[in-house]
Nucleic acid binder design. Structure first.
Lengths: 156, 156
DNA sequence: AATTAATCACTTTTTACCACTTTTTACCAC
DNA sequence: GTGGTAAAAAGTGGTAAAAAGTGATTAATT
C-alpha cells in the first residue's frame, strides 16, 4: 500500500517548472511512469498531486455521481476543476500549469515551495504558507483528534 | 510488546547524520531492519521516531480518513507532515532530514542531542532543550498526574 | 574490544541559467 | 471576415556550478 512520506523544499524555475524530489521519485518508482495528476485542494490553498493510479480511483468515485443531480454535478466540478495530467520531462521536472501555481501564490519572485508526502497523495505548498498553517499553533489539536476519533469509531 | 528504554546522548555530524545508539539497536534487533520513521512531535519541539511496524499502525488509521472531510484532512496533515522514512546506513547512522533537525534547533554548531526510549517510540531532543523541559521544574507534576489518572480511569 | 566521533573524498541532487522552439496575441492588408 | 505576418509570451531542452547527501577510513573515547 502506498505510503508517501517526507517533506521536500524546492523551487519553481522562471517558467514554473519544479524538479520532482529524488526521494519521492524513489518511493514512486513503480508507478511514476504512469504520470501524475495535479489539482487545487478543495479546502486549503495548496495543490494536491495524485499518482495517476490513485487519481483513477478518485475518478471512479466521481463517475458514480449522477449526471442529473445538481448537487452531484456541483461537487464534481468543485473537486475536479483544474485537474491536470503532468509527466516529468527528461530532467525530472514537472511543469505545473500557471493557473495552479497562482492559486498557491507562486510566481517568479515567490518561488519557494514545499512538497509533502501524505500516504497516497502529495501536497504542494507555498513555503511561507506551509510554515504558518501547518507548523503553526497546535493548541486545538487534541480537540481535532478527538473529533476525528469519534468519526472513525462511528463508522468508516 | 515493545518497551524501549534509556536515554542516550549523541551528536549529529556536519551532514546531519546521527549514529544510532548501540543499546537501542539491541532493543530493536528484530524490527530495526524494517526501518524507522521520524517526525516532528505535535506538541513539543522534539522529534519522534517510530519503528516502521509501529508507524504502519498509524498509517493504517490514517488511510481510513475521508478525502472529502475537511477535518480529517487537517488532522492527517498535522499528524503526518514531515514524517520521513529512514534506514540506517552501513555504519549504523541515520540521516535525519535537515528540515527536521532545524525544528529542534540542531545544526553544525549546535549538534548535541538526546535520544530517549519511550515504550513503543523514541524521541530526539536538542540536548539543551531536554535539560530544561524534561529535567526542569516539576512543581505541577502532581496535578498533571492526577489529571491523567482521571482520564485513564474514565476510559481507555 | 567495542562504541562513538571526526574527517575526507566522492556521488547525486538541486539550482540557476541560457538557447531554442512552439504557441499565442496583436495588428494590418486584402 | 479572412489570411498573413511580426512580436511577444509561453513552453522545452540542456548544462555548469553549487549544494546536499553518501561511503569509507581514521582517530578518540569508554
Amino acid at each position: 500500500m502506498l505510503n508517501l512520506l517526507g517533506e521536500y523544499h524546492c523551487k519553481a524555475d522562471a517558467k514554473g517548472r519544479v524538479l520532482f524530489p529524488a526521494r519521492l521519485k524513489k518511493q514512486l518508482e513503480n508507478i511514476l511512469h504512469h504520470g501524475l495528476v495535479v489539482n487545487r485542494d478543495i479546502f486549503t490553498q495548496c495543490l494536491v498531486i495524485y499518482p495517476k493510479p490513485e487519481w483513477d480511483k478518485v475518478n471512479e468515485e466521481m463517475s458514480r455521481l449522477s449526471r442529473y443531480n445538481q448537487k452531484h454535478q456541483l461537487f464534481q466540478r468543485k473537486f475536479m476543476k483544474g485537474a491536470t495530467m503532468i509527466d516529468l520531462d527528461a530532467a525530472g521536472r514537472m511543469s505545473i500549469p500557471s493557473v495552479l501555481l497562482e492559486y498557491i501564490q507562486i510566481n517568479s519572485k515567490e518561488n519557494d515551495l514545499v512538497i509533502t508526502g501524505l500516504g497516497e497523495k502529495m501536497e504542494i505548498w507555498n513555503s511561507g504558507a506551509y510554515q504558518n498553517q501547518v507548523l503553526g499553533d497546535d493548541m486545538d489539536f487534541s480537540d481535532l483528534a478527538e473529533e476525528v476519533r469519534k468519526d472513525l469509531d462511528g463508522k468508516m
